[in-house]
Design a protein around this nucleic acid. Sequence first.
DNA 1: ATCGGGACTTGAACGGATAATG
DNA 2: CATTATCCGTTCAAGTCCCGAT
Length: 629
Amino acid sequence: MPSHRNLLNGWPYKFAATRRAAFLRQQQQQQQEQQQQQQPEEEHVEPNEEDADVELESDEESLPIIQCDDTGSAVNSSPSTWHEQLSVMGNEDKIKWHSLQHVGPLFPPPYVRLPDQVQMLYNGQPMRLSLAAEEAATWYAKLLGRPVAQNEIFRANFFSQFRMLMGENERSIVQELSLCGFERIAQHLQRQGEDVTSRRQQQQRQQQLEQQHYGYCSIDGRLERIGNYRIEPAGIFLGRGNHPLMGTLKPRIRPEDVTINCSPLAVPAAPAGHHWQAVQHNQSVAWLARWHDTVTSGYKYMLLSSASRLQGIRDLNKFELARRLSNHIQSIRQSYWEDWKSPNLMQRQRGVALYFIDRLMLRVGNDKSENTADTEGCCTLRVEHLQLFEQLQGSAHVVELNFLGKDSIQFRRKLVVGQHVFENLRSFMQHKQPKDLIFDQLAAKKLNQHLSSLMHGLTAKVFRTYNASKLLQSCLDELAPDVTRSLKDKLNAYTIANANAAKFCNHQRAPTKAAKNKLNSFKRAIRAKQLAIDNLRRTRPTTLPVSTANHARRLMQLQNELAMLESQLNAATLRSSLALNTSKMNYLDPRITVAWCSKHGVPIEKIFSAALRTKFDWAISVADASFRF
DNA sequence: ATCGGGACTTGAACGGATAATG
DNA sequence: CATTATCCGTTCAAGTCCCGAT
């Protein structure tokens, strides 16, 4: 029984046909004469209204079987391209692999002690620390210039653990972080860094070799890249936003902390003198290695790269699920509109929450464990995060949302809502304290349960994928194909469409120093221009008509220049504070972009970086210009 | 039927490489 | 040609949501 998420069995016909045609072409080109074994394939297809008129291709042609090669070497050959064989996929949900071979993760080198003359000072006196404490001191020294080093929580967390690493003697002396002098260590590390820069070639060669050895695995006979083959080095946990654990030490991960997942006959050897914590052969998970992260008390995984077949399949499934929402969105919206009028409080809350998720692209907001920054999603919004205005700037029924979302990124937006939503919100907030939940009858789990009853497989996050992709499609649609338009113009249009989606998703980034300077210089120019205008206004023109006209012309010119500067500032502000890549990477169906590129004659590499091109090879190699989300 | 462990997706910041600029 | 801005891949934190144990 294929699960609802397994769209591979429910491959849209149009796509499967194109895919297969491409595959067969490829086969012919390579003149493979090898007889392929016949594989019975079940194509369980979801009824899809949009594709109903597409002619179905017979499934009778013989399909190749992918060879499972358990002995394939993971070194010295290039990764294969799985998407060329998409037509034979199936059963992705339960069984992730049949054979899996890798050499295990790469551990960071052991810590090397500082030279004797480089020591931490305490109250001006050099102090020789224990090995572990000295290493922690080097981590701290690297952060000296950063704002986080001034944070009290960070300093307190670091200092208490730092002291624990010291010997009795040192600990009894070292009582205050502010008396610890890390400057010498910092200077030493910086010099060391410069040395490495001079040996860059050598270092790059080293990394190349490491990647060749550790960077690939063999999965079901295909050679594929590993996303993160390096074990995270020990260091200081930073966290995002106001994290209560910032400054905590992340201990060194040893092979004894790592669990390996692989084929039974392909267990990698642990580094000399060590052993793995455990070895398992679990075919229902996609990770190659796992270890426990003590700070966040969760697991960290070594996984395949995003270019891998497994990840590609998941990506495709994700976008197909979001596309399927197109067919149901009308009735789903209808249903939550009706929830607004329900006599049942939970249903009304559910209706309004769903409205936020759909219209504002809020995340669902699961419950969080205690030691995390205080951030919110939809279901965890509190009274203090909302403000209701009967009237605001000429609009009736305005809701202002202001809270910290994922990664402590601020979400702040004013939204004009209808009467029902407004009254509902008012009643949800009535007689509550600022810290009380708005949707007290609702929880993320409940909401997702409801969603999956409206559409098989639907969860809250699908709305983000759906809305972002839909928006990109409609923005790009507005641009008619025009051969006279310059490439730069087209790229600009794409960037604007991309920026719209990013803004909708609230994908922000901290402006770089350079960007800040640029904004400041715009602001200065604007102030100067404003001043010039004011001055000009103050100086009375002489009564001569010529001079009056000149004066007016000059004023007009200055005002135009001011307007120009202001719009440039706006554009620069937007670009400098929006992260465009996150949506490209996670939310925008790449087939929309591929289709647009082929329609407008834009080379795909102008839009997708090398990494994105390998990630989305499954969409690019098909290059279906007629694709619509 | 609930709950928390577990697996995997999503996210901004970092820092090295490369391109643009004076 | 050196410096600075921008691009891009990497890193690792922080979400979502499933699933199996109870």
